[in-house]
Design a protein around this nucleic acid. Sequence first.
DNA 1: TCCACGCTTCGATGGAGGTCGAAGCGATCC
DNA 2: GGATCGCTTCGACCTCCATCGAAGCGTGGA
Lengths: 247, 247
Amino acid sequence: MTQGGDADIATIGALVADPGRCRILLALGDGRALPAARLAAEAGVSAATASSHLGRLTNAGLLAVEAHGRHRYYRLAGPAVARLIEALQQLAPTTPIRSLRQDTRAQALRSARTCYDHLAGHLGVELMSAMIDRGDLTGGDGTFDPSHAQQDKRTGYGHDVDYTLTESGTSFVASFGLRVPAHRRLIRYCVDWSEQRHHLAGALGRSLLDRFTETDWIRRSDTSRAVHVTETGQKGLHETFGITLGR
Amino acid sequence: MTQGGDADIATIGALVADPGRCRILLALGDGRALPAARLAAEAGVSAATASSHLGRLTNAGLLAVEAHGRHRYYRLAGPAVARLIEALQQLAPTTPIRSLRQDTRAQALRSARTCYDHLAGHLGVELMSAMIDRGDLTGGDGTFDPSHAQQDKRTGYGHDVDYTLTESGTSFVASFGLRVPAHRRLIRYCVDWSEQRHHLAGALGRSLLDRFTETDWIRRSDTSRAVHVTETGQKGLHETFGITLGR
DNA sequence: TCCACGCTTCGATGGAGGTCGAAGCGATCC
DNA sequence: GGATCGCTTCGACCTCCATCGAAGCGTGGA
């Protein structure tokens, strides 16, 4: 009588029943995307074992994978996975002493981080959303569309079929002092891990990150991918994009 | 290097890796306390197997157990366990169709329910807190103290060492029309599952539940332990105890 | 005091899956 | 285009644990 979907949570539970898999999930817990070899090292297992783990986790929808050259980058598939990890940590026998530090670090990454060469996290998606609101970009509503994520799972990037730069966007690029590399596709997007919405990638995304760094709106961390927004940056982001970051 | 507390979440994960154990946790998911035999039936396993599961879950701190006569009642040890179950359900492949109904049912139980013969849930803890504020009870601040929960894990009940009825409390008992059984300890408390705070048990707790039912402030469900607060009850609770229930 | 009942412990059985080396498969570099 | 690198697949081994019957242990009732 209690068959079917009822105890299927046990199949998810089985995935977090192995120390190696848990170490993989913890390594990805802050939203980074890491290659398989790195995760094998983190888990302390051979490449073969790690591959088996990664396959099962991906198959179950806990991880997403992007192929970049001959590397395969794995990341958490969504915030629900992070919630699961947090719930497990809360119940773990020895409450990790560095949980606070770990938490603030993860918090910082969720708030604003770099994703390769562009901005991600809350700041990243707010920025893209603001540019759409301003009329600089058009073609999407900035919300998450799973069907696109599905299409682009292989590369991890979205194309510019959905988003295009408007005329006012072009003039903004000039007035804001963006130096946009010509040899790259102008607009790409990523599905943001922590927000489940798009953030801006491509040449435009990169030039924005560069310009923000130049004008000291943001400062990048040496040790992690977290991004700190300066007071100047908070003011500027509010005036230019209407973005107010929560504390 | 990644030893110690790090991968201990896998030991928790292992507990939710078994369908039988998951069915047990799901059966307890709304905060009820059920005897071992009932849980064996819910899980679809023998008493021996269920006992093994219950032992492991209790040992790991996911379940709490109260001995009543020759029965042993198991319940979730705290809200963190419920959060874990919810996180798992969210990731489960087939999102259960009755999740909405199940959720509202759990919601109702969290809001107000009976616990044996007295009130628990949000209403239960608010009631006890209000009586302390009014000066009817004294000796505790109504917040959760883990050290007491530890002491009382064996019985599941707290003693009256912390809480005593004041003079004004005595007159309230009379004026409110409470008929307090003489042969029972007047004041006990339980650590509320969903609130992690104390709610009122003992003879006083029971007589309050009886009186509320008499005056039609609340109506008890036939099928579950959920409690419905009538309009009269909402008004009365507000006027007498200063309690305003959310929506 | 003896029996019935609820639950736990013990011991034996069987299946699921974590592990790694070796081989296979693309992609990249020189 | 051959060598190297990153990753996956395959096959074999072995440990862990879910399961149940039977026995043991309190509690409650007659």
